[in-house]
């Protein structure tokens, strides 16, 4: 596998995958345990509810703490221009990107590595999704590695900041269903 460790979105995706499996296993485990526990019946329901509510209270606080921490992480990793502008240093290279049925127009095909790039993304006809994928140093990586995305909406400009860490071939894939050729709506550019 050609994994660029520097691609943050891949790290996030990997975490989501791990947490998805972990939550599945944990939830299924709890459900299984309770399902196996039904016999014999405890006639006095209070003997169940009392400890049950105590566990529930603990779970509530645990969930609250985890949620607050995650919420903070979510917010500080928001990709929105107002937040990104505070994070980057130096003037970004600005690229105009326009989606249409069924392709993309970019006003630059070669972008710098290691410098902030701002994609001003819009669309001509319907909504599209501007998804950037990394296809390896020489474009030989068949399955792209996801880098970043934003929507491409007519009349609106979505400003997406990306700092490319890896030189090589990148491709845009459409990430909003836009009609019969949505799945082949792709475009290639280079980062050097």
């Amino acid at each position: 596998m050609v994994f660029s460790k520097e691609v943050k979105s891949v790290r996030t995706q990997t975490w989501i995958g791990i947490m998805s499996v972990a939550s599945l296993v944990a939830i299924a485990g709890i459900f299984l345990k309770v399902a196996m526990s039904t016999q014999p019946r405890e006639e006095n329901y209070e003997n169940i509810t009392k400890p049950g509510y105590a566990i529930r209270r603990k779970y509530f606080w645990a969930l609250l703490i985890v949620s607050v921490v995650c919420l903070v992480i979510s917010v500080i990793s928001f990709p929105y221009p107002a937040i990104m502008e505070a994070k980057i240093t130096g003037e970004p290279v600005v690229v105009k990107a326009t989606g249409f049925q069924f392709g993309w127009e970019l006003d630059k095909d070669v972008l710098p590595v290691g410098k902030p790039v701002r994609f001003d993304v819009t669309a001509k006809d319907v909504n599209h999704g501007f998804g950037i994928y990394y296809h390896g140093k020489d474009g030989s990586l068949k399955k792209g590695i996801f880098v970043a995305q934003t929507q491409a909406m007519p009349d609106y400009i979505n400003k997406l900041y990306v700092t490319f860490k890896d030189p090589g071939v990148y491709r845009i894939w459409c990430l909003e269903y836009c009609g019969a050729a949505h799945h082949i709506m792709t475009y290639e550019f280079r980062v050097e």
Binding site: F31, V34, A35, T38, Q39, R41, E42, I48, G52
Partner: peptide, 11 residues
């Protein structure tokens, strides 16, 4: 889960 735990319920 609390409702079901040790309820004697048949699946």
């Amino acid at each position: 889960l609390i409702l079901i735990y040790k309820s004697g319920m048949k699946w």
